[in-house]
Simulated scan of single mutants.
Amino acid sequence: MPHPVIALVLLSMTTSTLGAAPAPELSVRYERPDSPRAEQARKLLKDSGALKTRIRLPKPVKVVARDCDEADARWDGGKRRITICYSLVDKVRRTMTGIAETEEADARTTKARTEGALAVLFHHQLGHALSAMNGLGDSHAQADQFAALTLAADAPAHVVPAPEARHLLAGHAGIDHLSGPDESATFACLLYGSDPARHARIAQGGWVPAERAPACAGEYDRVKSTIGSMAVARP
């Protein structure tokens, strides 16, 4: 008969094996850029922390930041890989800088908006990954729903800058997954609805239509009750 302490250890190991195992973390790789502009984009993306997450995943996922032929961000279900292109990061940076010059926004505001936009890009792709790996299909609308949930749970510092950035970029074509005023309003509504008191600035900024704002908490609750269990952050 095994020693009581050994038996306790074996029981603990068995329980851990049979119970819910910790979700695997994302692996993130920044490939070597081929130009000074791409290097600037790599540094911006890495320093922003936008690719960090504590969201539980059903399977391992790789995140690769790299040079691409097009300004793009994409999820590859076959390889379980999220790709963020330096050219897209550079396009977001240049567009945000142009908006800041027009508005005469300060450097701190521009930095927060740019990092918020990068967080949306990543969390939208993370949404595609969660949707696909949980067998829910693969639509941009559902990826946006996951992105709102994961941002609210995982990146509180980006919750207000993210919808602001998306609102500013909604009319700019060619900025992957950030264009579109209707999509921007829905995304802002979900983030505002996650905590209307704490995120009041989203409504005050006009990033969600005033007539829609009172219903946003209900919209958020409906989305959370449907897919919230698949978008949980580790403590």
Score class of each variant (00 low, 15 high):
V92F: 06
H172F: 15
G77W: 03
E219A: 01
G49Q: 12
R66W: 03
V9P: 05
V160H: 00
D182H: 10
H128S: 07
I202R: 01
L118R: 00
L149E: 00
H167D: 13
L10G: 11
I202M: 03
R32S: 13
T150F: 01
A143Y: 00
Q40R: 15
H124Y: 07
L191H: 01
I202W: 01
L45D: 10
H124S: 02
G171M: 11
L121C: 00
E219Y: 01
Q40A: 15
P60E: 09
I55Q: 04
D72P: 00
P181E: 15
A7S: 05
E115T: 08
L11W: 14
L121V: 10
L45V: 12
V160M: 01
I84H: 14
H123V: 00
A203M: 09
E39L: 10
V63P: 07
A112Y: 06
G193A: 05
A210K: 11
S87C: 04
E211Q: 09
V160T: 02
A129D: 01
A188G: 10
S87R: 13
T102L: 12
E25Q: 14
V159P: 00
K46P: 05
D195P: 03
I6Y: 11
V208Q: 00
A188E: 05
A147S: 14
I99Q: 15
C216V: 04
T102D: 12
Q125G: 08
I175C: 13
P4Y: 11
A105H: 04
G228R: 00
D144T: 03
R80W: 12
S87N: 08
A50V: 04
E104V: 00
E164A: 13
S229M: 07
A147C: 07
A23T: 12
T53W: 09
C68P: 06
G206H: 11
A38T: 05
T14G: 12
L18N: 06
D182I: 12
A7E: 05
D106I: 02
P214K: 09
P58Y: 13
W75Y: 13
L18G: 06
V28F: 07
T186P: 01
D76W: 02
A38E: 03
A215D: 07
S194N: 10
G127P: 02
H128G: 06
H199V: 06
Q145H: 12
A152E: 06
S225V: 07
P181I: 14
M1K: 13
A41H: 11
P214L: 11
G78A: 09
E70H: 07
R222Q: 09
L168N: 15
V28L: 12
T114P: 06
A65E: 03
A107I: 14
H3C: 13
A38M: 08
S194K: 04
E39F: 06
Q204S: 11
G116M: 03
A20Q: 15
A41T: 11
G206P: 09
A117K: 02
K43H: 03
S48K: 09
M13K: 09
A155E: 06
L178P: 09
